[in-house]
Amino acid sequence: MKKNSRPLLIYLFIYLGFLYAPVVLLPLFAFNDSAIIAFPLSGFTTDWFSWLMEDESLFRALKNSVLIAVTASFISTIFGVLTARAMARHRFLGKQSMFGLIMAPLFLPEIIVGVSILIVLMQLGLALSLWTVIAGHVLLATPFSVSILTTAFNNLDRSLEEASLDLGENRIGTFFRVILPLVTPGLISSLLIGFTISLDEFVIAFFLTGTDPTLPVYIWSLLRFPSKLPVVMALGFILLVASLVLLSIFEFYRRRSESLASGKENSGIK
C-alpha cells in the first residue's frame, strides 16, 4: 500500500508532545531554585534532593510500599499460576464462574473494591495494617498475573509434559524439570506487573492503610503543602528515572539472552 503516512507521523509527534507535557516538568521543577512551582525558572539547585534524603517518613513509606509490592506480587503470581493451570488443564464444575470471580477486579472501579473491603474490616472489627493493603493489592493484581500466566501456560505444548511422564518422570519432577523452566519468563513478567501495580496503587491503599502510609498515600499527604511541592517533584523525577533504569536493565538482559541464543544458532548450523 503506497499511501502517504506523513500526516499520521505529524499527528504522532503532536500526540507524543501531549503525552510528555506533564512529565517534562518533573526535571525542570525538581532542579529549580524556587519554592514556588511557576515559570519563569529561577536557577539550578539540588537542594530538593537533599531534602528528600533527610525525610525519614518518606523512607518509611517507601519501605512499606516495597514490602507490600513484593508480597502482593508474590502472592498474586502464585494465585496466577494456580488459576492459569486449573483453567488450562482441568475441567471442573463452576469453572467459568470461579474464573469470573477471580478476574472480576479488572471490571470494577477501584473505589468500590476499596470501600467494600473497608466495610468488611470494620464489621469484623479488624485493624487496618500493611496486611489489609496487601490483601487489596493481591485482589487487584491477580487478574493481571492470571492473564500473563495463562498465555505462558497455553504456549506450553502439552506433549512436552506427556513426554516427560512417558520418559518415567513423575508429576512433581515434570513440574520442576519441564514446566517451571519454560514458564519462567511469564513468572518474571507477572511479578514485575504485580509489583508495579501495587507500588503505584493509591485508592485502595488510601482506604485500607493503617498508621503506616504507603508511598502514594504519603505523596498524597505532601500534595496538600505547597512548600513541599518541589520535594515532590524531585521524588517524582527519581521514581521516573529509577523505573526507566530498572526497565532498561531488564530489557538489556532479555535482549542479550536472546542474541546469545540466536548467536549459538548460527554457529550451530555452520
Partner: peptide, 17 residues
C-alpha cells in the same frame, strides 16, 4: 515512558500546567 512515574504526580502535574 511518561507513565513510569506515580499516577498521583502525573495528575498533579496537570494542576501545575
Amino acid at each position: 515512558i511518561p507513565f513510569w512515574t506515580s499516577y498521583l504526580l502525573r495528575i498533579f502535574l496537570w494542576k501545575i500546567i
